[in-house]
């Protein structure tokens, strides 16, 4: 069977009608293909996250990963953009949601789209994927170890990260949560609280917590990588999207 994919940077219209960069990877061929919004982690629009987008394309999805740090400098290196984000207060929830909405529109506007788009995010992107499930028209959402969903940031932190669990009544799609039992943010107790709240609200969801894994177990370029959790995690992701985005 022939396999091929196209990966390139594109422009999407985001918050304030700003044009921002996005990495788009999709299978070659006429489709129709489902889409995935890939939300990068706090270290930025980096090589490993773009590799995740290409993996989704390999698996038959149109993956789009907007550069949430575009406004700090579209041509900055990944580490410089992350430094600018640290110094500049990261990005607001409002800006993220509008940028993500622009990426969703871009995918759905492609002739090869089947109209369905899921969201997935890692680390800070996990919380943002949860936000997308609450606020945006996504068809399935995956939260990979997102912190500050049920508890906000500690009061001693200068940057306040608000919890987002209060938005859960607005969730309009199934949720998959993937966590490590050794993580501290989110801790197993926090994961249990999110799970319980989604159950209480009658929101379709499935949570998996992996032994011998902490935060960031999908990160192939970091010491947190855990092969068993990552391999099983990818299987669960593809099964979940296969059921909800086909």
């Amino acid at each position: 069977m022939y396999q091929g994919l196209l990966a390139e940077t594109v422009t999407v219209v985001g918050h304030n009608d700003d044009e921002i960069g996005a990495y788009l990877a999709r299978p070659l061929g006429p489709g129709p293909f489902p889409g995935v919004l890939v939300i990068h982690h706090a270290p930025g629009w980096d090589t490993a996250t773009k590799e995740i987008a290409r993996r989704f394309a390999y698996e038959g999805y149109i993956a789009i990963c907007p550069n949430l740090y575009h406004r700090f400098g579209p041509d900055l290196s990944t580490d410089d953009a992350a430094a600018a984000a640290r110094a500049g207060g990261w990005v607001t929830t409002e800006q993220f949601l509008a940028d993500a909405a622009g990426a969703l529109r871009h995918v759905r506007g492609l002739p090869v789209s089947n109209g369905k788009v899921g969201a997935i995010g890692y680390c800070s992107g996990g919380r943002q994927s949860f936000l997308a499930a609450c606020e945006l028209p996504v068809d399935a959402a995956i939260d990979c170890y997102g912190a500050f969903v049920v508890n906000g940031s500690p009061p001693e932190m200068p940057l306040r990260m608000e919890p987002v669990i209060d938005r859960a009544p607005k969730i309009s799609c199934p949720i998959l949560g993937l966590f490590g039992v050794e993580d501290t943010r989110p801790s197993p107790d926090e994961v249990a609280q999110i799970d319980a709240e989604l159950t209480r609200l009658g929101k379709e969801h499935e949570f998996h917590s992996f032994q011998n894994a902490g935060h960031g177990f999908f990160a192939v370029d970091r010491t947190m990588y855990r092969v068993e959790a990552a391999v099983e995690g990818w299987r669960l992701i593809l099964d979940f999207y296969g059921r909800h985005l086909a």
Binding site: P43, F72, G73, L76, A83, R86, T223
Partner: peptide, 29 residues
């Protein structure tokens, strides 16, 4: 100096003390 404790870009550790020494008005690079 912008000081953070978070995931590093290059150091082979899960979390690092990251210090960016900058000069206001100059490019972050």
């Amino acid at each position: 100096a912008v000081v953070s404790v978070d995931h590093p870009f290059h150091a082979p550790v899960e979390h690092a003390l990251i210090v960016d020494f900058t000069n206001a008005g100059r490019p972050v690079s």
